[in-house]
């Protein structure tokens, strides 16, 4: 119950205990992953054999490849990065045009369109993946049969991965940016017009600066969701694997602590991203 009401001792103690147990549950897997990145053994399992940095920098004497020497893994990080950048740019741009469309535009069928824009969020990622895969292949086949065109980007590969992830991340960006645009005070724009500003000038100096926090926030979310996406990517991936797919493949084979090392790297990277975002949003 709430603090202003009498709470028996057992309830207070129980709440505290539950909270501690919950936090342990939450952090145990992450701490484990981090700790075993430094274990001097061939497999990420106990017992503890002592501290080593082999799984980061490698060790030729023990025939260990570290994260920084594992070209396959580094390549997949780069692939994920490229995909995430493309998805972020696409999602934020389309999210912004959608926000203006839905908040400012008046047209027939607007209600239906706003429901449709939410649909990608309730379609399981695997199904988004297979439907885009099947459709792209059909388009490619038709173009090939009737015009002899072979369009490589419609076959499984990174361009399709980008499209697949974009198909639902755009919906999230639209929601975030629309929510902020809705709260915008329109008199600011009117004042600028009255003072003689042109449309592009108003957009550039008044409206977009106001939207900045939402643009940055949705860009960060889009980047993170793309980087971590698994379901949609799994169905659309070609020869170049993004990081999550590469890690999944190695985890099935029973992997070395290199995976722990790359995981730790990911944890640190996302923590830095999260902290810098929070710092940005704090003064507001």
């Amino acid at each position: 119950m709430i603090p202003s009401l009498p709470r028996p001792v057992w309830l207070r103690a129980g709440t505290a205990l539950y909270l501690v147990a919950f936090l342990i549950f939450l952090f145990l897997p992450l701490v484990t992953v981090g700790v075993f990145a430094f274990n001097d053994a061939a497999y990420p399992a106990p017992p503890w054999h002592g501290f080593t940095l082999d799984w980061f920098i490698g060790n030729a004497a023990k025939a260990r490849t570290g994260l920084f020497g594992d070209e396959e893994l580094l390549g997949s990080i780069w692939t994920s990065f490229e995909v995430a950048c493309a998805v972020t740019v696409l999602s934020v741009v389309i999210g912004t045009t959608n926000a203006f469309l839905m908040e400012r535009g008046r047209f027939w069928g607007k209600q239906a369109l706003s429901v449709m824009m939410l649909a990608p969020l309730v379609i399981p990622g695997v199904i988004l993946g297979i439907s885009i895969l099947a459709f792209a292949s059909r388009v490619a086949d038709v173009l090939n049969d009737s015009f002899g065109l072979e369009l490589e980007f419609l076959r499984p590969g990174l361009p399709l991965v980008v499209l697949g992830q974009f198909s639902y991340i755009a919906a999230i960006a639209t929601l975030t940016i629309s929510a902020r645009l809705k709260r915008f005070d329109r008199t600011l724009e009117e004042a600028a017009y009255n003072l003689g500003a042109s449309r592009p000038a108003v957009l550039w100096t008044i409206t977009l600066p106001y939207l900045r926090p939402a643009l940055i926030g949705s860009a960060a979310i889009a980047f993170l969701m793309s980087f971590e996406n698994f379901n949609t990517t799994l169905m659309l991936v070609g020869a170049d694997s993004p990081l999550t797919i590469m890690m999944y493949g190695r985890m099935r084979e029973g992997a070395t602590p290199v995976l722990n090392a790359v995981s730790l790297f990911l944890m640190v990277a996302s923590a830095v991203l999260a902290l810098s975002l929070m710092r940005r949003s704090e003064p507001r």
Binding site: P29, L30, T32, V33, P44, F227, M251, S270
Partner: peptide, 26 residues
Amino acid sequence: VCLIPFWVSETVRTLGWMILLRESGV
């Protein structure tokens, strides 16, 4: 604090559970 683990990829979290729970695990 409750949100932090979810900034980390599901792959990483699953790796953690595998190391914890497998027969030779923690």
